[in-house]
Computed example of a mutant assay.
Amino acid sequence: MRLGTALLPVISLASASAVPSWHDKSAHEVYHDTAASYRIPTVHESAVLARRILDIEKIATLSTIFPNTHTTENRPSDVGGSPIGLPDYFANCEPDTGNPTILELPIATSFKNVQAGSNISLSLRWHAPYRHWYSVASVPRFSLVGYLEELTDEEVKEESIAACFVKKHPDAAAWLPGNRIHVSKWVRFVVQEIYWIGGFGDRAYIGWIPLEEWQSVTREEMEKARLPGEGSGRSSWKSWFGLNDKQEMLEL
């Protein structure tokens, strides 16, 4: 089997961008030429990208653990202690804090598990626009570890939580607190830890983002940053921050 043919799947996954023309190069040369054009973003740069994802995306996975005792519903006897991840709505309604807002329906499994004492995490990923092809393995994703905290009536009013949330999720208007379908309440996901996978390790930071870095990201930084597939369609991670090839980001 020819080397070029054998490595084609690897090439398509290894690059966070469109692979340059490889008709005149071997697969080995293409991979290394592409990888060499990247500098791994700093921890703070990665925090900025994570906060931008939080601001743009609106569906995430809530992961919790089933309690060992379950008297409130008919569950299989062997699921106690097992994790379960379920999609849920969120919105960035308190952007100064980095704590996402969630409309909690206590009847839902994730929130029942939390009420029974489960830890909780919130996992997000960037969905690149359809017109730009990216391997899921090459685009940023991350997980937040924390806890849920109910918002006060004053906070809901001051932060215009309902309007913010419904702007992201128009259908959620039917489930706002006080609706006739289900009991619901506003909660914030208080972020304590952040684990980030920016893409492939030869061109992206993979690891923990300190909470102070997460909280220090400004609105200006979030608005200036660009994720893969945003804006001009350029693929270099430097273009995510609006830089040209001759500009460099400051290292931490």
Rank of each mutant, 00 (worst) to 15 (best):
L227I: 05
L54Y: 03
F241I: 11
W196N: 02
H32T: 11
I206R: 03
E149Y: 04
I197T: 14
N119G: 15
V136L: 08
L144C: 00
V79I: 15
K167P: 05
P67C: 05
L103P: 01
V187N: 06
A91P: 00
P20F: 13
V190Q: 02
G178M: 07
S138L: 06
E57R: 04
E158M: 09
Y31F: 15
I161V: 09
F90D: 00
A6R: 09
P210E: 11
S239L: 08
N92L: 03
P140A: 07
Q215D: 04
L13P: 12
N68Y: 14
S110V: 06
S118K: 04
A16Q: 11
L176R: 09
A16M: 09
V190R: 00
L144V: 00
T218H: 04
G207D: 06
E220R: 07
P228R: 02
V79S: 05
E45D: 15
G80T: 06
S15M: 09
T101K: 01
T71V: 13
P210N: 08
P210Y: 10
S110G: 11
I197E: 11
Y89A: 13
S82W: 15
G231H: 04
I120R: 02
G231T: 06
A50L: 05
D96C: 08
A204Y: 04
P76Y: 12
H182F: 12
N92G: 01
A47E: 00
S143I: 14
P228F: 02
E213H: 10
T61V: 14
D55H: 15
E45K: 11
S63F: 04
T69I: 14
A174T: 10
P100N: 03
